[in-house]
Design a binder for these strands. Structure first.
Lengths: 346, 346
DNA sequence: TGCTCGCGTGCAACCGGTTGCACGTCAAGT
DNA sequence: ACTTGACGTGCAACCGGTTGCACGCGAGCA
């Protein structure tokens, strides 16, 4: 930039130099006031702070980043911002990061592993670390990403050697199956979620296992994108199996299934019972959805906590694994099994 | 940083200096290869590019930002990422920004004006410009924000002197009212959206005006947060007015109203017709929703286009206003008016 | 009174690119 | 053959902070 160019500009943001001159100290002192104030005399800190405030001085993230290598920014990457499971984890992460004076950016991979890789590459250059939620990457690629020097914490992917926070659906799913069995259901369908989802694998396995333990039938349906209309389509698939109850990978699919059942003239919970997962739609469905409550927000907060540790000391333990148990929330989409299997009426 | 510290680090990212040495040119030349290649001999560019690629060199955003004042990053700020109206505009914005080699971050204000102000302040220091979508700020504050030197483009807020892209709901709403009138409806309720929403004001006024023009009754209900359960509550309010049709501020409210009507045993479209806005739920409701289609994605793209112009030349015209007309999409939530007003049945 | 020690501050190099200016080269113009 | 000038590249200052080292000063100790 030409030397005089910044004089031409309107009110230029004040720099450390201006503050130093105004306060009658060196630039180093001003710098230290904003980074290591404890190393200075309290009176100096007070004076410089006052002058800086009067001038409206704010340290430049960019300049600081250049010399320290710290951007003061982390990323939270999710497969789909529109999926209501993620906003709570993002918000919690953001709130916790703000506590450390770190800002958060959100990345959306659109459920696409290729985009996910690109995004991670970009974010490695823009942030100090990333929280990767429900990654759709195959394990080897995930491991490769983690092996790059950039701090990374996973949420809902269980890869040994990579720090991770897991929302453990198993207890909640077990409760769900028990609940349905207690209502007399002998055949349960599981509406699978997206291929490559760790949570889906975990839930599917839990349904199978618990049904087996109780001696009732479990049918696992094909993978579904976690969207409303896929759930609607799944309703027909559920009816085709003859199951009297369904557990869906998430609340969105469950809500779709509710709509699908309505279309087929099948009453919920009169003829078929439906259970969701994540408890993100709360009571916004009709009928209000019985669902497995997972603690997304908590996962987000913990992930950032762990991430910040890694950022501070990159040599920290890379194999930390935190698991958060879930539980069933009973609302009105489940009821007693009726004799005879349900059939579409229109 | 201590001079030898970077030798201790693992594979340090190569700098311009390393590339220059390896290619036998000066650092200026390497720099120019990545910023103004046309000023260099083609053979030099080719050679340096090759060497840089071999070394895995990537220019540092931070360093570049420090000298140029350009961060290579813009922000898109929305009131609520979970509201499905916004993802399409975000994605379109992101895609267009990527075209210019600029990355995008997303900000969520949680429908809270105070958070919005904070977020804007933070983003001004982190980005080259921001696209502010459906701001909930009062006009004077918005004007104040716009007066700060940081480039800003509004979407769905019409403030003179601030560049803005507007999705014009009026034509679509007019079609909607005409459509209902054509089906014999003589009393239409409008389910208002969030207070402070420009789109809501526009839609409300359009409903009133068109109904007046056709000589039919319009009742405007209280403001609602654009969420499913608010829509459900609104169903009762609609029934209380005696209206046989309702137009909702957005598809989420409309979907909620659908659920609410079901709860009350009122058939849609048999007894009551419902129309949404934005066309974001597409056919994911039951029955599929008749709605006013607005072109969110297009708005996002245009906003970024305008923003980049402002970033390039801050003295550009600040009073540009682009308006994108909407239209009605007829699906199955609207039907002929029936004699006698509908009443809750349970 | 003289010496050590530690605290508070300043100096200057550095982080990794960018860019105004100067210099050298070579082709076109006279 | 000499001038002119465009073109390609290098030099060095600069962007705005950070930080290792050195220096000065005053307190504690002998």
């Amino acid at each position: 930039m030409h030397p005089v160019a910044r004089l031409e500009g309107r009110r230029q943001a004040p720099t450390i130099k201006v503050v130093a001159a105004a306060a009658g100290v060196s630039t180093s002192t001003v710098s230290r006031v904003f980074s290591h104030p404890h190393r200075l005399k309290a009176s100096t800190v007070a004076h410089v702070t006052e002058v800086a405030a009067r001038l409206g001085y704010k340290p430049s993230h960019t300049a600081r980043a250049l010399s320290t290598g710290r951007l003061g920014m982390i990323a939270v990457v999710v497969p789909d911002i529109a999926n209501p499971f993620f906003p709570p984890v993002i918000r919690a992460a953001q709130a916790h990061a703000a506590t450390d004076g770190v800002s958060t950016v959100v990345g959306d991979t659109d459920e696409d592993p290729a985009k996910e890789l690109d995004l991670l590459a970009e974010l490695e250059r823009r942030t100090d670390g990333v929280v990767l939620v429900s990654s759709r990457l195959p394990e080897d690629q995930l491991r490769e990403v983690a092996s790059r020097e950039h701090p990374l914490v996973l949420v809902n992917r269980d890869v040994a050697g990579v720090p991770r926070i897991l929302v453990d659906s198993v207890p909640g799913i077990r409760d769900a199956v028990d609940h349905l069995a207690g209502l007399g259901h002998r055949h349960i369908a599981y509406i699978s979620g997206p291929a490559g989802s760790w949570s889906d694998e975990q839930r599917r396995a839990a349904v199978r296992e618990r049904c087996a333990a109780l001696g009732i039938t479990a049918t696992v349906l094909r993978p579904h994108r976690p969207e409303h209309d896929e759930g609607r389509a799944a309703a027909a698939e559920v009816l085709a199996t003859g199951a009297t109850a369904a557990i869906a990978f998430d609340d969105g699919l469950a809500q779709g299934a509710l709509a699908g059942m309505a279309e087929h003239g099948v009453a919920v919970p009169g003829e078929v019972s439906i259970i969701g997962c994540d408890d993100i739609l709360a009571a916004t469905t009709y009928p209000p959805l019985t669902t497995v409550h997972g603690r997304g927000g908590e996962a987000g907060r913990l992930a950032v906590e762990l991430l910040m540790e890694l950022v501070e000391s990159p040599e920290a333990d890379r194999d930390r694994r935190v698991s958060l148990p879930s539980h069933l929330v009973t609302r009105s989409s489940t009821g007693p099994a009726t004799a005879g299997s349900p059939a579409p009426r229109r």
